[in-house]
Nucleic acid binder design. Structure first.
Lengths: 189, 189
DNA sequence: TGTACATCAGTGAACGCGCGTTCACTGATGTAC
DNA sequence: TGTACATCAGTGAACGCGCGTTCACTGATGTAC
């Protein structure tokens, strides 16, 4: 891990972090392997050495994102509303990861670690929603879980897209408080 | 409007339609002015003549989208659930428009027609949600309206992103029915 | 019916750009004996 | 303690690509008289 002139030390992690940061600021389209290499002070071909290709880099970022999301959702449970808030909070605090996680077109579709991480996060979210409606028929439960997911994912997407920036609906300056308020108005039955 | 060898006849509309189609299929990233020109059988510089630049084209598409969305929401009202379904239906049937409408980074930020169309669509959606909760304090009303928007926008986004493709939550084959079912589980109070 | 002229729509050549990817390579590190 | 060797990390030159944008142009259309 030591920095020598030649070996960077921890290039892989550095590039992942820089990618997340740039996506958060400028969007996924702005990311290029060459740009990240420049940023890290390394030759332009170095990133490919770690990630194979550009999709490989974004896939690694998405995996990291799903793993963190699953952990944060699990830590927030079992109360449904707290799980919901945790989902939004993840998107707000890790926008670089969040933005890439659902861009399947940019990822290696057949990556097994990605599929596993995605599944785990999905399960964590659903178990949160299950708290809310213990004795329903499965079909009904699924509809509720989908509503819960849509609710939090929609808020996160609207926020990231800047749709709430000058909206009359955005009264709180703090997005997490705004999300809390809107989640509080919803009942499932 | 007649097709001659030289004049296309209705190139502007043709390009808009082709762009929407390609976004629906391949995503916004796949769109290029040169590609659309090729598709229309026209020189590569012709599209710029109508739209100024690439952002101009996407802005025109977004305006068209917001205008159509506003009309469809208004036609579906005043019942809240029908307005909600109409929002989702718009996204499902006009994915090429929907995908671009919220990509502010790709649009001319200062276009007045765009701002107006966006505002009109927002008002149509909010008036739908207002039905649900007539006698609330304004602050509370806004939270509810935001929840409603998040709900439908989230479903649309998840669907477009392919997140529901192999999900256990997706039981109906028909996305509109799926949306109806999930909207039905939600109460606002 | 004809002519002159302005306006609009589309052309085609040219520019410069940054990018992803490949590949033979070299420098550095660690491990086995 | 020293040496040989495999492995890993990063280099730098080269390739080919499609793209957006600009610009002077020409072909077609419509309108005024």
């Amino acid at each position: 891990m030591a920095k020598t002139g030649y070996h960077h030390g921890d290039l892989r992690a550095t590039i992942l972090a820089a990618a997340a940061e740039q996506i958060a600021t400028d969007g996924v389209d702005a990311v290029s392997l060459r740009g990240l290499a420049r940023h890290a002070g390394v030759s332009h071909a170095a990133p490919a050495h770690h990630f194979g290709d550009k999709s490989g880099l974004l896939t690694a970022l998405a995996i990291e994102g799903f793993e963190r999301l699953a952990a944060e959702l699990a830590a927030a449970g079992p109360d449904f509303r707290e799980v919901a808030v945790a989902y939004v909070r993840f998107a707000l605090r890790s926008p670089g990861h969040f933005d890439v996680m659902f861009r399947r077109d940019l990822l290696h579709a057949d990556d097994e670690r990605l599929a596993a991480a995605r599944t785990a996060a999905g399960a964590a979210l659903r178990s949160g929603a299950a708290e809310e409606q213990p004795d329903q028929a499965p079909r009904r439960q699924h509809a509720t879980q989908l509503a819960a997911w849509s609710l939090v994912h929609g808020f996160a997407a609207l926020w990231r897209e800047g749709a709430l920036e000058n909206s009359p609906l955005n009264e709180a300056g703090d997005p997490e408080a705004l999300a809390r308020g809107m989640i509080a108005t919803v009942r499932f039955d």
